[in-house]
């Protein structure tokens, strides 16, 4: 299981990559492995307002559908269109090609509640 050091993690198994006010969001290696083969991703709309800890996307595998809870609040500034026809990228490369959306954050302090890689590793391994 891969836990990149430079990312922040949520208890709902999303990761965030921060660049200034902008956050890129995806689901973790642990989450994609638990879901199995992802076959459909329901994206948030560009320009939509998302709120921290509220579902704004869905990831569906042959096994089950799972909500993506936005780790941060803000406005959706980009979505990964490639996932529409190749959702398997989410399994193959959850931290790079498999990113889901980007948010222009409205409250940077929300990041303080997120875990670093070692805390998330301990958290997810405790769950499994």
């Amino acid at each position: 299981m891969d836990y990149p050091e430079e990312l922040l993690y949520s208890q709902e198994h999303e990761w965030v990559s921060v660049d200034g006010n902008r956050a890129r969001v995806g689901i973790t290696d642990f989450a994609q492995d638990a879901l199995g083969d992802v076959v459909y991703v329901e994206m948030p709309e560009l320009g939509a307002t998302v709120s921290a800890n509220v579902s704004c996307a869905e990831v569906e595998s042959t096994k089950a559908v799972s909500d993506v809870y936005s780790p941060v609040s803000g406005t959706v500034s980009a979505i990964n269109d490639g996932l529409t026809n190749t959702p398997e990228r989410l399994n193959q490369d959850p931290y790079q090609e498999g990113w889901i959306y980007e948010v222009e954050m409205s409250d940077l302090s929300e990041l303080d509640a997120m875990m670093d890689a070692s805390a998330y590793r301990a958290f997810s391994e405790g769950e499994s």
């Binding site: 199995g36 083969d37 076959v39 042959t62 096994k63 398997e88 399994n91």
Partner: peptide, 9 residues
């Protein structure tokens, strides 16, 4: 067993 390598494969 539910899956080995993955359902799609």
């Amino acid at each position: 067993p539910i899956q080995y390598s993955g359902v799609l494969e």
